[in-house]
Amino acid sequence: MSRIQARFDALKADGRRALIPYVTAGDPNPGLTVPLMHGLVEAGADIVEVGVPFSDPIGDGPVIQLACERALVHGTSLRDVLGMVREFRQKDSETPVVLMGYMNPVEVMGYVRFAQEAAEAGVDGVLTVDMPPEEMGELSERLAAAGLDPIFLVAPTTTEQRMQVICDHARGFIYYVSLKGVTGSDTLDVEAVAGRVDRLHHMTGLPVGVGFGISTPEKAAQMSQAADAVVVGSALVRQIQEHTDDDGLILEKVTGLLASMRSAMDADASATA
């Protein structure tokens, strides 16, 4: 059983929803990424999503674009990111790690090598924002052979027919994009999201996470009512952006925000239990 599935099974048994924080590897400096990952787990993360910096992140809003630029100043490469996951695994063999990024660094490394090295480093899932299942072909096979879960986005514009195609290709969990827009936007419609997540639950047994635009503990709690997992990225990265030259303060602010999201979600869960 994959670490991702095991984690969702355990949460389900407890009646809890997963909280999945995202940080861009190498932001604001490569030395802080692994301590941040551990800090996020301590603050209540169930799965950690690590962004692979890319020069042209077309699916991301300004907050994560700037995070990529800060990471690339240090030359943070896909290979470096795998090294960070390997280091993280020395102290944490339980928490699933998902890489989120864009195709080109993977293309350059080569599918075979990427899948092998990612699995060896301790990565559990891979989400490439600009790789739809239709183009996935060989990469899908390589990821499967290495035991890595391909994670896919489903968007508000995704047709029912495509939702089924994506569900058939996906493993680990489905990532529902809660709004039309890039990461970090701020126009959430909880009811509409709940309806779409419900459709997905009818199509697949996989857990459904919701992300994009979840910026406060209140929104995290609301969304956790509708889905199996809540993904938080730009809100955390904004804390890094505001304190780029103080590692200690970044750790404090990022983990503090995540912890407050965790308590809001758990309070909501026990209130409705």
Binding site: I58, D130, L153, A155, T157, T158, T159, V177
Partner: peptide, 20 residues
Amino acid sequence: KDGHFGVYGGRFVPETLMAP
């Protein structure tokens, strides 16, 4: 029909744009 010229071309975009 999927926009390929040999191995080139295709459609590599975030999911939101696939339907449009």
